[in-house]
Amino acid sequence: MRADRLLALLLLLQNRGRMTAPELAAELEVSVRTVYRDIEALSASGVPVCADRGPVGGYRLMDGYRTRLTGLTRDEADSLFLAGMPGPAAELGLGADLATARLKLLAALPAELGERAQRIQERFHLDAPGWFRDADPVPWLGTIADAVWRQRTLRMDYRRWRGEVRRELRPLGLVLKGGIWYLVAQAVDPAPSDGAGGDAPGDGPAHRAEIRSYRISRVLTVQVLDEGFARPADFDLAAYWQESSRRLEELRYQGQARLRVSPRALKLIPVKFGAIGARAVAEAGEPDADGWVPVVLPVESVPVAVSDLLWLGGGAEVLGPPELRAAVARAVTELAQRYAAPGGQV
Rank of each mutant, 00 (worst) to 15 (best):
S43R: 04
V175A: 13
L312R: 09
E27R: 15
D136A: 14
R5Q: 15
R133C: 13
D134H: 03
Q223Y: 03
V332K: 11
V138E: 06
G228K: 00
L109I: 02
P55F: 05
L24M: 13
P88V: 08
I120H: 06
D75R: 08
G114L: 02
V56C: 15
E29N: 13
T34R: 14
L42W: 09
I211H: 02
G130V: 11
A327N: 09
A101F: 08
L42R: 12
I120R: 08
D226E: 06
V32C: 10
D4I: 05
L69A: 15
A191R: 11
P55A: 09
R150V: 06
W292T: 00
Q254I: 12
P322R: 08
H125L: 07
L225T: 12
D236K: 01
V299R: 12
A340D: 05
A341M: 14
L11C: 10
L28E: 14
W181N: 05
A265E: 11
R247M: 04
G202E: 02
A282N: 08
R325W: 00
G93N: 05
S245M: 12
E76Q: 13
A128Q: 06
A90Y: 00
E164G: 14
A278C: 09
E334Y: 11
A89D: 01
G291M: 00
R338A: 15
A329T: 03
L310Q: 05
N15C: 13
A278F: 04
L174K: 08
E29F: 08
G84A: 07
L176P: 11
F124E: 13
M62R: 10
P171D: 10
L105E: 04
R2F: 02
Y240T: 00
W292K: 00
R338L: 14
A21W: 01
E164N: 15
E250M: 13
P110V: 07
A90D: 09
A305T: 03
A99G: 11
